[in-house]
Amino acid sequence: MSIEIKNISHSYSKGTIQALKDVSLSIKPGERFGIIGPDGAGKTSLFRILTTLLLADNGSAVVCGYDVVKDYKAIRSICGYMPGKFSLYYDLSIQENLNFFARVFGTSFEANRHLVEEIYVQLEPFKDRPAGKLSGGMKQKLALCCALIHEPKVLFLDEPTTGVDPVSRREFWDMLDRLKSRNITILVSTPYMDEASRCDRIALMQDGKILAVDSLEGIIANYDKKLWSVKTQHTNAVLKKLKIHPEVASSIPFGDSIHIRMKNQLATFEDVRITMANMDDSLTVAPLVPEIEDVFMDLMSAQ
């Protein structure tokens, strides 16, 4: 295993805030592992423990065979870490930041340039510009380069795409795709559920707990509740009716449709269609393959 986390718990403010509750996870070498959960789920605390920046109250963790407490120095030299907040030097240029991070890790930018070449070529035209004057997308690219420049075995990316628009989010994941051949283990966290499809495996996290761990396909396949998609021109009005409908167990808006679950799990398409038509004959109903958000919300409510 590349990362082995056993029964980690952590609290803040004299135990009043439980950030992590008995978290265990195993992450394989070369795996791209996503930790998916909203703000406050405990993602950053977990990252800080694994990167030896925070001591857990309980439990243990091993990164590439090194214990996060005893062997913290060894871990620091083999990890790349991109924190959620942009943490490079604003008043150093792109090039100076890269040189600095390479040297801190006992190497040089020139020696390891090949590791970041594909991303660096996009930064190179602006290499003398101070990091503080870069656009959000460029800052992100530079931060990734700085985290990669010492050839880490494990890369920790804490919410690299938060607050980023959908196009730039996609570009960031494409950038990670290009690292795949390099066999770096990547642990990445995100609040965006749709990014699950870009990971080999994911852990769904909420309120300090891991709700599920599997591949995206595995998580969807494991979800045994039947869902239906209802489409309407008047989502809000229809939602209000669905919420009080005696045969409907749950109704959740999903963009231009509403995902519903019937109390009777054995209801056929025809049953559901008739029930909905009786409520409002302008609705269209279709069977539905659950999305990751369906599963997440279901697991959340079960807590």
Binding site: G37, P38, D39, M193, M297
Partner: peptide, 16 residues
């Protein structure tokens, strides 16, 4: 201005 950034999916819908 981005009122639901990082908010969990259930609360996000309650917000809407």
């Amino acid at each position: 201005d981005e009122p639901t950034g990082g908010v969990d999916p259930i609360t996000r819908r309650q917000f809407w």
